[in-house]
């Protein structure tokens, strides 16, 4: 199975390739990609150098252009597709049907992957994207169980890529605007969920307050893990009770499910975290490369050591095992 690794900077790309990534995904330094954070992402020149480095080491580069074009500014997104092809990218990861159509018409030789932001969660819609826009691979939303993924693979020729590690969203992928209510910016339009410019931490007598857009989203005691203030993972008090309303701040870790995912017909395993450091990238990639090689050789998957890298310092297998059912 192919490991698809995040890179928020050229240094992280090199770290991922050296750590054993088969493929690296990254984005341009603007709102065309869903990790539009300060200090992150690639200039056009950096993208070309990154692709050269990856190809020289036998790895591929995918360029994520996976936000939804703003009306009147579609040129920015179209130019990103053209620049990805010029840089020598192996594929682009797109979500918007209009942009997919543009890429299919104007850059037919550039391989197209469907972003998780498109929330394609059944074989009919995936096959539609394949017929209409020549999509070769779909990144499945993190709402499917392993049997559901197997059912999709049984009915489509499109390759499937699934997340195996990193941050989780509670909403159907790509359809969340919670962040907009507190900050005016959303993942789909601006490439940022809970932008850092609206985040503030305050040490108080009661603990650490994590605030977003002036609202306290979470308060933790001295010895508890620090939270990032996303509304969906906030801890609220209502009706005399305090708790996580939507979701606990935990991260996905499906490394022990790699054999089942392989059996379900999955082509590629994706690691979340373009906003993370090259240290994170190297550790996670090395871990998953070891696991995938063990799977291919018929050896047991080694026990993971990645919890400390996770949000909330705790992990879950998420929807892959729907234990709440």
């Amino acid at each position: 199975m192919e490991i698809v690794c995040p890179a928020g900077t050229p240094a992280a790309l090199r770290a991922a390739v050296k750590a054993g990534a088969h493929t690296v995904y990254c984005g341009f330094a603007d709102e065309t990609n869903a990790r539009n954070f300060p200090g992150l992402n690639f200039s056009r020149e950096e993208m070309q150098e990154g692709v050269r480095f990856a190809h020289a080491h036998g790895a591929k580069v995918l360029v994520a252009i996976n936000t939804y074009p703003r009306a009147g500014s579609e040129t920015l997104w179209r130019q990103a597709v053209a620049d990805a092809e010029t840089a020598g990218a192996d594929a682009v990861i797109l979500a918007d049907p209009g942009l997919l159509d543009y890429a299919a018409q104007s850059h037919p030789d550039l391989r197209r992957h469907l972003s998780v932001q498109a929330a394609a969660a059944n074989a009919d819609i995936i096959n539609f994207y394949a017929r209409a826009f020549g999509v070769k691979r779909v990144v499945l939303p993190r709402v499917l169980s392993v049997p559901e993924i197997a059912a999709i693979n049984a009915e489509t020729e499109v390759e499937t890529e699934v997340f195996v590690f990193g941050g989780l969203c509670v909403m159907a992928e790509g359809r969340c605007s919670l962040s907009s209510y507190a900050t005016g910016q959303s993942p789909n339009m601006n490439g940022v969920c809970s932008p850092a410019s609206h985040v503030e931490y305050r040490e108080t007598g009661e603990g650490l307050d994590a605030r977003l857009g002036g609202y306290t989203i979470h308060r933790v005691g001295r010895d508890e893990p620090a939270p990032y203030p996303t509304l969906c993972k906030g801890c609220f008090t209502a009706g005399g009770k305090t708790g996580h309303l939507f979701e606990d701040p935990v991260s996905l870790n499906a490394e022990q499910l790699i054999p089942q995912l392989a059996k379900a017909g999955v082509t590629a395993l994706k690691i979340e975290g373009r906003q993370r450091s090259r240290s994170y990238v190297a550790q996670v990639v090395r871990n998953f490369r070891t696991a995938v090689d063990a799977q291919a050789a018929g050896r047991p998957i080694p026990q993971g050591m990645l919890a400390s890298l996770s949000e909330g310092q705790a992990t879950t297998t998420g929807a892959y095992k729907k234990t709440w059912r």
Partner: peptide, 22 residues
């Protein structure tokens, strides 16, 4: 590049105040 910044932040080994984006 020996440590991950987010991991140090989650574990409270690092504390950030003021302009988080900066």
């Amino acid at each position: 590049g020996a440590f991950d910044g987010d991991a140090l932040f989650f574990s409270r080994d690092l504390v950030i105040e003021g302009d988080t984006a900066a």
